[in-house]
């Protein structure tokens, strides 16, 4: 890695770890959910650096686009939760122990794997699941022979959903 890559790596690491810490330490549940986006974005960036752009795209689409949005919706639906600025957690020691244990297991697996001790993980890098499949994904959405009709229908559906949400949410005129 040259100094530029080191720089990027450093920034992404700060995003991932800093974001993760902010999620845990924040006292406002809603802010925690927002910080989660930052952390997950960092992970997507790490995937890009590992030349796995497909995983990065999926990371953004699925984790940020769907899961975090779902969490935010859940928080917004239970309105009382939004105002809470104290998030009491009496079992934080238990959580800490579980997190530390998980981290240890993953780290051990990786370290052993790089020494060739774990037969489940191949030592050579897998064939790159990179650019090609990502391009396939994009092409499939606009290729007339593949998913163009669902894609068009989805756009109409999104418009209907957006207008519907506005109709339901706006006040009396």
């Amino acid at each position: 890695m040259n100094w530029l890559e080191w720089g990027f790596f450093g920034v992404l690491t700060i995003l991932v770890i800093g974001g993760g810490l902010a999620v845990v330490l924040n006292r406002n549940l809603f802010h925690s959910a927002l910080w989660l986006i930052v952390s997950l974005f960092g992970v997507a960036g790490l995937f890009v650096m590992l030349s796995a752009p497909f995983l990065a795209a999926v990371q953004v689409l699925v984790y940020i686009g769907a899961i975090v949005i779902l969490i935010i919706f859940a928080i917004m639906l239970t309105r009382r939760m939004m105002g809470i600025s104290e998030a009491p957690n009496s079992q934080w020691t238990l959580g800490l122990a579980a997190a530390a244990l998980t981290f240890l297991v993953i780290a051990m697996t990786l370290v052993l794997a790089s020494n060739g001790a774990n037969p489940l993980i191949p030592r050579e890098p897998l064939t790159q699941i990179g650019g090609e499949s990502l391009r396939d994904l994009g092409v499939a959405l606009v290729d007339l022979n593949q998913y163009v009709l669902p894609f068009l229908l989805a756009s109409v559906l999104l418009e209907a959903a957006m207008v519907g949400a506005i109709v339901l949410a706006r006040g009396e005129e």
Binding site: V156, A160, G164, V167
Partner: peptide, 8 residues
């Protein structure tokens, strides 16, 4: 597409 506008 059938359902979501109906909910609204």
């Amino acid at each position: 597409l059938l359902s979501i506008p109906l909910y609204v």
